[in-house]
């Protein structure tokens, strides 16, 4: 059974026809070819698939496309502003917060939400806030630095 899901993805209107059991991550990766959103697990544990649904971080493997009908979706491909990298993207590079890059889009999307949620962003808060995102490469050290540094820039802006 095919359903039509209407979404705004990275600022563009999209009408996608997909089956009722299509997850948001599948819709993004397989229907819209937005392959920056990654799938790293099958139990909603790793956070590689994190995107923003109406501005909040959501694990896109965990939600059906039909559930987000009418929502505004932002993926890693949509956070740069007219070619200028988002402060969080720039900070991940600046602080060497990525190695293989597989967890990175999800980490960046989760981190942006973390900063926007208005926490103080002390080291323990950042660490707790990123608990839903697994990185096997970086040991988190530089990710924490990146989030702290971008957080400051985002708040100053």
């Amino acid at each position: 059974m095919s359903e039509t899901v209407n979404l705004i993805v990275n600022g563009q209107d999209k009408a996608v026809s997909c089956s009722a059991n299509t997850t948001l991550s599948q819709l993004l990766r397989e229907h819209l070819m937005l392959t920056g959103t990654h799938v790293g697990c099958d139990t909603s544990q790793c956070g590689a698939c994190t995107v923003h649904v109406d501005g909040k971080a959501v694990k896109s493997c965990t939600i059906l496309a039909v559930q987000v009908d009418g929502s505004e979706i932002t993926t890693i491909e949509g956070i740069a502003n007219q070619g200028e990298q988002h402060a969080m993207q720039a900070a991940f590079k600046e602080c060497h917060g990525l190695q293989c890059g597989f967890c990175t889009p999800g980490m960046i999307m989760a981190s942006i939400d973390l900063v926007q949620s208005g926490m103080d962003l002390t080291e323990p808060e950042i660490r707790e806030g990123l608990e839903g995102n697994i990185c096997r490469c970086t040991g988190y050290h530089n990710i924490v630095s990146a989030v702290a540094s971008a957080g400051q820039k985002m708040r100053e802006a």
């Binding site: 993926t75 890693i76 491909e77 993207q89 991940f92 590079k93 990525l98 890059g101 889009p105 960046i108």
Partner: peptide, 9 residues
């Protein structure tokens, strides 16, 4: 890094 942080890996 540029390709990874922009989802272009």
């Amino acid at each position: 890094d540029n390709r990874f942080i922009t989802g272009k890996g």
